[in-house]
Nucleic acid binder design. Structure first.
Length: 414
DNA sequence: CCCAATGATTGGGT
DNA sequence: ACCCAATCATTGGG
């Protein structure tokens, strides 16, 4: 800027003097002018600029400068190249989109909801409370992100237009090609986008932290609601002879309980192992569910209903055998001493006393494989074809009451 | 605060 | 791929 006014000025003065001394003098003047240019007032400068623009030599000089500029611009353009989209930036963008930060405004945050669902089950009313905090924080982040982004965008635009105006203004006094303007704009954009990338990066970090705190904290569990537990227990005790739900059954249960299939699997895994470990503890529960399913079945089949209390198989205390002596009782209880209460839901009418006695016998023989046979004998429908899951622990508790269950393991050679 | 219950994870087996 | 067993970590009641 400072140099340009000086140049025509030089010519202006230079037209007068022809000898070398005069030229030197001119240069001194020019330098002087350059040095003092900052002292000039704005009006002065404008006036001088106007004078320069009106100078008769200006167009010719301008053209020369344009030519020179053209060449340099070409070389510059050769140096600059279209850089591919930054992979880092793309990664960030993708992630923000996936997290629902940069995606659609609201809509329950589809992606975020999906992630949440993956962590702890479907869109039940149950976990909405759990994730409300998460959602609130996420939307907070999103809001900050958007306002910041908008701010940057606006600043970028403002700055760009400002620079362009300046360049346009300058283009009257110095040659500026459109290419050059374009380049300048792209430089500005690049600068601003690098700032935006920082914003995106920190936003990503915030989201990651949030996620790790709320969703990835996998051990931060919530108990299933009562209904879900009941559904699961119902299935478990009504399939006590083979409590291994198929994939389909798991899906069904998961849907009914508003949890994931994996959670169903976990539940059954836990349930099996814990049931097996301490059958006595679960007896009451088993009786209850057995009774319930039995009653349900009875009601459904419109059979003659000698309904006994559905939810309270009374006096079913863990130790007490409550044998329903009389006609067709649907479920039997088993005493905790002998352990097992499988096929609790079976409709094997009066068998249970035999079962009990035989169990006792078995316990004395200490047979392990006999348990299986006994089971098969008394299962009315011959359910447990495999006999698998329950016969291992049962005899152990049977054989030696003093010994904890499960002490006898893979001990077939007995 | 302790402790049992409970959902989730891990490691090992088939 | 599924299961079992042990274990972790949280929950919720006392």
């Amino acid at each position: 800027m400072a140099g340009h006014p000086g140049l025509p000025q030089h010519m202006q003065e230079g037209t007068g003097g022809t000898d070398g001394d005069g030229r030197k003098q001119d240069i001194g003047d020019i330098l002087q002018q350059i040095m003092t240019i900052t002292d000039q007032s704005l009006d002065e400068a404008q006036a001088r600029k106007h004078a320069l623009n009106c100078h008769r030599m200006k167009p010719a000089l301008f053209n020369v400068l344009c030519e020179i500029k053209e060449k340099t611009v070409l070389s510059i353009r050769g140096a600059q190249e279209e850089e591919p989209p930054d992979p880092q930036l793309m990664r960030l963008d993708n992630m923000l989109l996936a997290e629902g930060v940069s995606g659609p405004e609201k809509g329950g945050g589809s992606a975020a909801a999906a992630a949440a669902a993956a962590a702890s089950g479907g869109a039940g009313a149950d976990n909405s409370a759990e994730h409300s905090d998460y959602r609130a924080k996420l939307s907070q982040i999103r809001q900050i992100y958007h306002t910041e982004l908008e701010k940057y965008e606006q600043a970028c635009n403002e700055f760009t237009t400002h620079v362009m105006n300046l360049l346009r203004e300058q283009s009257r006094t110095r040659p500026i090609s459109p290419k050059e303007i374009e380049r300048m704009v792209s430089i500005i954009h690049r600068k601003f986008s690098s700032i935006q990338m920082q914003l995106k990066q920190s936003t990503c970090e915030a989201v990651m932290i949030l996620r790790s705190r709320f969703l990835d904290a996998r051990r931060k569990r919530r108990n299933f609601n009562k209904q879900a537990t009941e559904i699961l227990n119902e299935y478990f005790y009504s399939h006590l002879s083979n409590p291994y739900p198929s994939e389909e059954a798991k899906e069904e249960l998961a849907k009914k309980c508003a949890i994931t299939v994996a959670q169903v699997s976990n539940w059954f895994g836990n349930k099996r192992i814990r049931y097996k470990k301490n059958i006595g503890k679960f007896q009451e529960e088993a009786n209850m569910y057995a009774a319930r399913t039995a009653v349900n079945a009875a009601n459904a089949s419109s059979h003659g209903s000698q309904a006994n209390s559905p939810s309270t198989p009374n006096s079913a205390g863990s130790g007490g055998s409550f044998n329903m002596s009389n006609s067709g009782d649907l479920f039997m209880s088993v005493q905790s001493l002998n352990g097992d209460s499988y096929q609790g839901a079976q409709v094997g009418a009066n068998v249970q006393s035999q079962v009990d006695t035989l169990r006792h016998v078995i316990s004395q023989t200490g047979g392990y494989s006999e348990g299986l046979t006994a089971n098969q004998m008394y299962s009315p429908q011959g359910i447990n074809a495999n006999g698998g899951w329950q016969d291992a622990p049962t005899p152990s508790s049977v054989t030696s009451p003093t010994e904890g269950p499960g002490s006898v393991h893979s001990d077939t050679s007995n």
